[in-house]
């Protein structure tokens, strides 16, 4: 991990740059990480957004951003970032703009866009070596439309479109690996419930040039069906049970920034959320529980750090 000045909670900035008053749900895990990210990135940024929950961050005439924001569409936020970055570069090259006016270009999308219709634009932006930061808040479903399953929904989770006794039959897409396969400057996973880890990763990404992409798991009270007060705890459990590995891809290598030890049984995480309640009630679905635990175990057994 790149050296950053942030080592412990006390080092975290607390200027609360990100405006309050947004219509995000109470206890939103995505907003929890975004406001921490914004502390570090600061207002010399332009956020380029794809359709998702956070499109509602800026509703005329209210915006939480002290810097800039552009809403595009669900599939093409990275292309919007391309247009802005190129335009800023042209203005800088031709000295039509003071260097002090330059901005960091940040794409902000949910998992629906990132894993689905926005993936082509993201892949192409990486291929063009676009100098941008991509933040994906991953609440594991199409949250803004009422939590239908997306390509990021975990196996077995109940969503508005996987209501059967076994929940979602597919598996969560490995977006980290798909991104890393493009060999961009930086890829990481993070979560708002681990603020130091998240801050260090944003700092690390900020120091680099080229495509830098971060997925933050976003515990979602209405979508995952839990009490908003538990959002941070559930986030911590996601890390401690190993179902959400915290890692970085940098210089061609994947490194885990936090290896859970001891690793808690995954059901401690699952049972906190209504979307997995069918695994426990009316009776335990031992088969599916074992399957999920097994997939987590297999992941960590393959890690030799």
């Amino acid at each position: 991990m790149a050296k950053t000045p942030i080592r412990r909670m006390k080092d975290l900035p607390s200027s609360h740059l990100f405006g309050s008053g947004t219509p995000m749900c109470a206890g939103c895990g995505g907003l929890e990480s975004l406001h921490q990210i914004y502390e570090i990135l600061g207002p010399r940024t332009v956020f380029v957004n794809a359709a998702g929950c956070m499109t509602l961050l800026a509703i005329y005439p209210f915006t939480p951003f002290r810097g800039s924001w552009l809403y595009t569409a669900m599939a093409s936020a990275p292309a919007g970032a391309q247009g802005i970055r190129d335009a800023l570069d042209i203005l800088l090259e031709q000295q039509r703009m003071e260097p002090a006016e330059d901005l960091n270009v940040v794409v902000l999308t949910g998992d629906g866009s990132a894993n689905g219709m926005g993936l082509s634009a993201t892949s192409a932006a990486m291929e063009r070596n676009l100098d941008f930061l991509y933040i994906c808040y991953d609440n594991e479903g199409y949250g803004n439309t009422g939590q239908q399953f997306s390509a990021a929904t975990p196996h077995g989770a109940r969503t508005a479109t996987s209501t059967g006794p076994h929940g979602f039959s597919g598996n969560k897409k490995d977006l980290f690996s798909i991104w890393a396969a493009h060999k961009p400057a930086y890829v990481a996973t993070a979560i708002g419930a681990e603020p130091v880890d998240l801050a260090r990763k944003i700092e690390a990404a900020k120091q680099l040039k080229g495509p830098r992409l971060i997925i933050t798991l976003a515990p979602c009270p209405p979508g995952w069906d839990f009490d908003p007060r538990d959002a941070a705890d559930i986030g911590k459990l996601a890390v401690k049970t190993g179902i959400w590995p915290l890692k970085e891809y940098v210089d061609g290598k994947v490194v885990h920034s936090k290896i859970p030890h001891p690793r808690l049984p995954v059901e401690e995480y699952l049972q906190t959320q209504g979307r997995f309640s069918h695994l426990f009630h009316p009776r335990r679905d031992e088969g599916l529980l074992a399957e999920i635990q097994d997939s987590v175990d297999r992941y960590w057994n393959g890690i030799t750090e």
Binding site: L70, Q82, G83, D86, A87, I90, L91, A121, E127
Partner: peptide, 27 residues
């Protein structure tokens, strides 16, 4: 002078065009 970028689709191309125009260059 100028810069040309080949996008991966027209959807992205028009997004980039609008975004660059919104940044204040002639597109």
């Amino acid at each position: 002078p100028g810069r040309m970028v080949t996008l991966e689709s027209e959807h992205s191309m028009i997004t980039a065009a609008g975004a660059a125009a919104s940044t204040g260059v002639r597109v």
